[in-house]
């Protein structure tokens, strides 16, 4: 059975189904991260002492990661724009760059985690490290998820461009909405954990 409204908009919603689907999913993601932010506020306000993030965490590395993730958001949206302009080769380049940036972010994060673990610092250390590892760990899992989806659309999934170009363009747009959300979460995580 053909999935309906993948290209045309559904009359009652005014959207194609994937667009509505991803926004509903992102709404649930807002609540997921929101619950952890809420827990963070509660723990921090209730704590007798709370260290300044920059004293314990590596701000320059997190700054580099912020730039990488913002850059990947731009290449992601440019990959979609390339498809809109019917330039598949350019799409592949921009999507490839987005994936590389995703891996770059994880490599930097791995260095950060590695430095902490090598000093015996784990989530069990104290409340600060527990929240730091939980929040950045969940965010990191989202980056991994995004890389998997983007790699599929860069590789085997891109065959759809030959048969159903509009549907494929919509798929890339939806994957992009998710990727931008992951960037957006980091935009708030970075100052919250590292700079306050």
């Amino acid at each position: 059975m053909q999935i309906p409204y993948t290209v045309t908009t559904r009359p009652d919603t005014g959207l194609h189904n994937a667009k509505l689907g991803i926004w509903l999913f992102l709404a649930s993601e807002v609540m997921l991260f929101g619950s952890l932010f809420s827990a963070y506020i509660l723990l921090r306000v209730a704590a007798v002492e709370w260290p300044h993030g920059s004293q314990l965490l590596n701000v320059p590395l997190a700054f580099i990661n912020t730039v990488i993730l913002i850059g990947s958001s731009v290449t992601m949206v440019l990959s979609w724009a390339s498809l809109k302009m019917k330039d598949f080769a350019k799409y592949r380049r921009y999507m490839g760059l987005t994936i590389l940036c995703g891996f770059g972010f994880l490599v930097v994060k791995a260095f950060e985690y590695g430095a902490k673990f090598s000093h015996g610092l784990s989530p069990a250390e104290d409340l600060f490290y527990a929240t730091y590892f939980t929040l950045t760990g969940l965010h990191g899992l989202h980056v991994i998820g995004g890389i998997i989806v983007n790699t599929y659309f860069w590789g085997p999934g891109s065959r759809m461009w030959d048969t159903e170009p509009e549907r494929f363009t919509n798929r890339v747009e939806v994957a992009g909405l998710y990727w931008h959300f992951v960037d957006l979460v980091w935009i708030f995580l970075f100052p919250t954990l590292y700079l306050l």
Partner: peptide
């Protein structure tokens, strides 16, 4: 966050149902 949502996620020109969903969120 507003810049990312407005321009990269195209919220500056989205359909009403997306706004309703986000308002509830």
């Amino acid at each position: 966050g507003g810049l990312v949502a407005s321009y990269f996620m195209h919220l500056i020109s989205e359909k009403k149902l997306v706004y309703v969903t986000l308002l509830l969120t």
